[in-house]
């Protein structure tokens, strides 16, 4: 059930000059967020910035929830200023997450940059062997590596476009290669808008078992403003309710 409340900041871990991990005191055990679901977060009492910002659940345990956040504009800058003991406004868990793999399916997780956030939780939810492809433009876009390396039962492949780490190339190149090798794959993808656009152009990936988490600007996050509409084969869908995870074949 979705809840709207004030959550205390337990800790803020700085991961790079642009990335941080925010841990909030949220009774996660009762809310049980699924990988791919998200929260809307707001801090401060000022009307500027006005709207809440959406962030995927990165991780949770009995009494806390973690969000992996990349500093972008004013809202995330403001979130970076919070400190232990402060309270932030949260609403969640929202949206529909990734469906878990069925028996016999080979999970392949594909994350670009900050898109790794929901995939980390998904990788932890899947208790069978999985392949994880993680990439960015260069090595400084590969965040939270120390966390990702710790996920059990995972074959991790790293990609950078400039070759500064791992294999030179994109995760989508990597995905095509993986797909030639594995039988009955189920693919989970989250990455920047550009990557999703490229993905939509790859006709050969339009098998049924590819799930993509998409982003759209949001105001309410609860389905009432219709601001987050995303064009699909069945007309406009709300990213905050029918998404953010869609089947690639729907897009």
């Amino acid at each position: 059930m979705t809840k709207c409340f004030k959550a205390e900041v337990i800790s803020k871990e700085i991961l790079s000059d642009r990335h941080f991990l925010l841990r909030l005191f949220i009774p996660a055990d009762s809310l049980r967020p699924r990988a791919g679901q998200f929260y809307l977060i707001r801090t401060g009492t000022s009307y500027d910035p006005l709207l809440r910002r959406p962030f995927s659940v990165f991780n949770w345990d009995n009494n806390y929830m973690e969000f992996l956040i990349m500093k972008k504009g004013r809202g995330t800058e403001q979130l970076l200023q919070v400190s232990k003991g402060m309270f932030v406004d949260v609403i969640g868990p929202l949206g529909r997450g990734f469906p878990l793999p069925e028996r016999g399916q080979q999970p392949v997780l594909v994350g670009g940059g900050i898109g790794i956030a929901p995939l980390y939780l998904l990788a932890r939810e899947i208790d069978t062997q999985k392949i994880m492809l993680y990439g960015g433009k260069s090595r400084d876009e590969l965040i939270a590596m120390e966390y990702i390396k710790m996920i059990g039962d995972t074959e991790l492949r790293i990609f950078t476009e400039d070759g500064s780490e791992g294999i030179k190339g994109t995760v989508l190149d990597g995905l095509r290669e993986v797909l030639t090798d594995v039988e009955s794959p189920v693919v989970y993808i989250c990455g920047p808008g550009q990557m999703i656009e490229t993905l939509k152009g790859l006709e050969d990936l339009r098998t049924d078992e590819v799930y993509v988490s998409v982003e759209e600007r949001m105001a309410c996050g609860i389905g009432v403003c219709l601001g987050c509409a995303y064009p699909t084969r069945e007309g406009m869908k709300r990213v905050c309710i029918e998404g953010p995870v869609f089947k690639l074949s729907e897009l």
Binding site: P49, L50, R217, M218, C225, G227, C228, Y230
Partner: peptide
Amino acid sequence: QGNPPPRIWETPC
């Protein structure tokens, strides 16, 4: 069906 996205842009207050 309404308009294509983006449909929302935040401005000061």
